[in-house]
Design a binder for these strands. Sequence first.
DNA 1: CCGACTGTAAACCGATCGGTTTCCTCTGTC
DNA 2: GACAGAGGAAACCGATCGGTTTACAGTCGG
Lengths: 197, 197
Amino acid sequence: MTPGKAAPGTRAATSARDRLLDAAAELFYREGPGIPTDDLCRVAGVSKRSMYQLFDSKDALLAASLEHLAPAVTASVLPAPDTGPGPRARMLYVFERLEEAAGSPGYLGCPYAAAQVALRDPSHTASVVAARVKRRMLDFFRAEAARAGATDPDLLARQLAVVYDGAATRAGIGADDLGGLAVVTASALIDAAGITE
Amino acid sequence: MTPGKAAPGTRAATSARDRLLDAAAELFYREGPGIPTDDLCRVAGVSKRSMYQLFDSKDALLAASLEHLAPAVTASVLPAPDTGPGPRARMLYVFERLEEAAGSPGYLGCPYAAAQVALRDPSHTASVVAARVKRRMLDFFRAEAARAGATDPDLLARQLAVVYDGAATRAGIGADDLGGLAVVTASALIDAAGITE
DNA sequence: CCGACTGTAAACCGATCGGTTTCCTCTGTC
DNA sequence: GACAGAGGAAACCGATCGGTTTACAGTCGG
């Protein structure tokens, strides 16, 4: 049976392209950009031939997999656009999701920060994609901070971004197991920014 | 003239071992662990033959270079053991040094966090060395927090470590240029921990 | 039943890399 | 000056990797 088919007679459960993107996202995350293309193809159940006619190069696949991952990641860490509670709760929601993810086994930090750190080249296509995602997160914090009436919304947003990346990094390298640390820290900074609600 | 000699007739200015460790520290930092051994040897002015009789493997050289770097790094970021001002100023001193380093061109984040992130393998010898250095920093924060009479010294120490790594990471990937952000954030957390002095 | 097409499996290619070895030059010693 | 040792330059080796190509199996429209 051809891999990727759910059952005989049905259409492909997932396209070769999606399987490749998923496998790439996971393996690049777990093993870093050094993972051989053969491994990616084997896990995805796709031949190298197909991979190279779907993507120009390994680097292009890496960038595409980060791009592909973005909607799911932001959706899982950012609250829905018009969620009930106020901006304070919406900001803290992000850190609750982070703690949740960091607690699960196999957590290795933020995939986008990790990619940028591992690549060490801001001009790399994948780095550009990662930077855009990280930027979106900063924008979210800034918008909420402004809505909440923070003394300096831009400062608070950057502070929260620092806490997010610091907590993710330290959890990812096993230097801390968080356990409320990110939420508590973000909360303290939000308080210090003059937000009471 | 043989590289590494300061002038004819004098003894070697630096040993081949030290030149190798310095070159490794810089190139691993700038290019990541993927840097070829030939490049390391060329920059160090040492033959591969000598390198491999000084170090067992490339990985061993990486670990040794991180170990070699540790005293200088901690000395440059931690205040002298019995510096005049109180614990609050001593903690903030670390973040001032961080901002200073992050402002210089070519800054790519904390070398130890970067190594652990890039290697993605906590059991790697270099990761173990890096973890030890990061741990030393956490211990410094905890000791100072306790001296300062923080409500929860362990919590404050972990918070400051998070801010340190977050600020270093974000500055390293070009997501933020700090400019007081680390100091201001650390200061806010220290205040929130009930330290007035 | 046929030919065009799609995609897999696998051989293949050239380059690169970690690590070893060979050769030779330079140095210091007696 | 002979000689031993250290170390640099560079060839070399086997493995791996990114990427290409060939060969073949399955599928679909006619």
